[in-house]
């Protein structure tokens, strides 16, 4: 019953978002072009840098591209569903967040899913198409494992968005924290195995971006160890719980400024 209500709310806000994009078609086209260019430019970089050697750190060019495509898959899913986070700062500094809090729908749900970004959908389809094209034969076990680790990665993406929202309540700073996360994720567009051990450890254990973006690709390629599978499940659960705890803590500090 509750799920049905939330689905209805999401559907309503999604339809409204879609109408906004249709209303400003010129702007949507420019944003869409930008997203495709950014995607294409990195593929070119991979071809130019890794295309000249048959194998680099044990990975072939097609495997590098698989890592990049899986990175995009999760990155796009996060942006597609949780674009609302980019508007959250405005709500906090104007005090409009008060209105979100009094509604009978979970405030986190409202903040994160308030604006579905349809402009990410075309690129998402291209990414899925290329993933299938580059990896035409994948065993059922690897596919199953890929689904599981992708799910863990998505939970971590949700946790990161919740943490950013918490920082937003505490400091009114959202945009930069979101971009810091996205800038850091530049490093995990390729397998972290190519980096020095300290960088690799940082991206796996301290800020587990490698778990979010690299592990699903490894699962798809059948090179993820069982220890990593267990670690992925545990860290995603822990991070999600921790982010929800910090969110609850942050809400107690909300000052309702300007309202």
């Amino acid at each position: 019953m509750k799920l049905k209500k939330y689905f209805k709310v999401w559907l309503k806000t999604t339809v409204l978002s879609f109408q906004v994009y249709l209303f400003s078609r010129g702007a949507s086209l420019l944003y869409l072009l930008g997203k495709f260019f950014r995607f294409g430019f990195f593929i070119i970089l991979l071809y130019l840098v890794f295309g000249k050697t048959s194998s680099l750190a044990g990975f072939s060019l097609s495997q590098f591209i698989t890592f990049f495509l899986v990175f995009n898959l999760l990155d796009i899913l996060g942006q597609l569903f949780f674009r609302g986070i980019y508007w959250f700062r405005g709500e906090v500094i104007t005090g409009k967040f008060d209105l979100t809090l009094v509604k009978p729908v979970n405030p986190l749900f409202q903040i994160l899913t308030g604006r579905t970004d349809f402009l990410d959908l075309p690129l998402l389809l291209v990414v899925i198409f290329l993933l299938i094209k580059i990896n035409p034969v994948v065993s059922w076990l690897n596919l199953l494992l890929f689904g599981l680790i992708l799910g863990c990665g998505f939970l971590l993406v949700i946790a990161i968005h919740i943490l950013v929202a918490s920082v937003g309540v505490l400091t009114t700073e959202v945009d930069h924290s979101m971009w810091i996360y996205r800038d850091l994720s530049f490093m995990v567009r390729v397998p972290v195995d190519i980096y020095q051990s300290s960088v690799r450890a940082f991206l796996t254990f301290i800020l587990p971006l490698a778990v979010v973006f690299n592990f699903p690709a490894k699962a798809l390629l059948g090179i993820l160890s069982w220890q990593s599978v267990i670690y992925s499940i545990i860290i995603s659960m822990v991070f999600l719980r921790l982010s929800l705890f910090i969110w609850s803590l942050a809400l107690t500090k909300y000052s309702s400024a300007s309202s």
């Binding site: 680099l56 750190a57 810091i180 800038d183 850091l184 190519i194 980096y195």
Partner: peptide, 22 residues
Amino acid sequence: RLRSLILLLSLYFFWLAVYQFN
């Protein structure tokens, strides 16, 4: 500024890694 530093470090470590093999 932190963002600029992260971007710089990201590119630095990326190219450092590339030159381990080239």
